[in-house]
């Protein structure tokens, strides 16, 4: 490891502890670390987006390689910047309209196919005997869950009688779903804490030993 790596690790350790200090209460060390993160991130992203989009994808192909097909796209991109003036902001709508139309055109059919039609197929249970019994049972539960939740979100009739009882089943499925989601969220947050602790208790001492 070179000396700059060691310095980097120590800066990271100090900043980690500064961010953790918020758990006790708000303080200047936390504020300094937070502002540093926001400032560095903003600078990094502006430069990165500008280089990746304007230089690499537009300026180099057009001005160095003579790919003039990219010019209309570049002009549309420039039109969006006209939003900065109140007098000319209406012109930017043409660029946005083009972008929305193109995005919708290639996204809507694919989303309908992959997110709706294939997912609907996935709720149809297979024939008994063609799959293991636990997979069949799982498919039946998925079907009951989908139907009951859809009925819960059907608002054109009062949720009384049979409709009310089915929507109660739907609520139960929703609650199980939210519970699973919450459990996974806790796992995700704890993982981030573990990552910082692994850095503080394992990587940092190793770096000290290698100095």
């Amino acid at each position: 490891m070179v000396i700059w790596d060691h310095i980097g690790m120590w800066v990271a350790a100090v900043l980690t502890i500064a961010i953790f200090s918020l758990l006790y209460r708000d303080n200047p060390f936390y504020r300094a670390a937070e502002h540093l993160l926001v400032g560095v991130s903003a600078g990094y992203y502006v430069i990165n987006y500008f280089y990746a989009s304007v230089i690499r994808k537009f300026a180099v192909p057009v001005f160095q390689q003579g790919d003039l097909w990219l010019l209309p796209g570049g002009i549309l991109g420039l039109l969006i910047l006209l939003r900065l003036s109140r007098r000319t902001q209406w012109v930017s709508r043409y660029a946005i309209a083009f972008y929305v139309a193109a995005w919708s055109g290639y996204l809507i059919p694919s989303v309908i196919q992959e997110r709706i039609l294939i997912q609907l197929q996935g709720t149809i249970p297979p024939q008994p005997g063609t799959v293991p019994w636990d997979a069949f049972l799982g498919a039946i539960i998925v079907l009951i869950g989908v139907i009951s939740i859809l009925i819960y979100f059907y608002f054109s009739a009062p949720h009384t009688g049979v409709l009310g009882r089915i929507s109660q089943v739907g609520i139960t499925f929703l609650m199980i779903g939210f519970g699973a989601s919450f459990g996974y969220t806790v796992m995700g947050r704890v993982s981030l804490l573990i990552g910082r602790f692994q850095f503080l208790f394992q990587e940092l001492p190793e770096s000290l030993m290698n100095m």
Binding site: G177, A180, S181, Y184, T185, M187, G188, S191
Partner: peptide
């Protein structure tokens, strides 16, 4: 490979 939050 997904984060735990996305896994659901």
């Amino acid at each position: 490979g997904n984060t735990a939050i996305q896994a659901v």
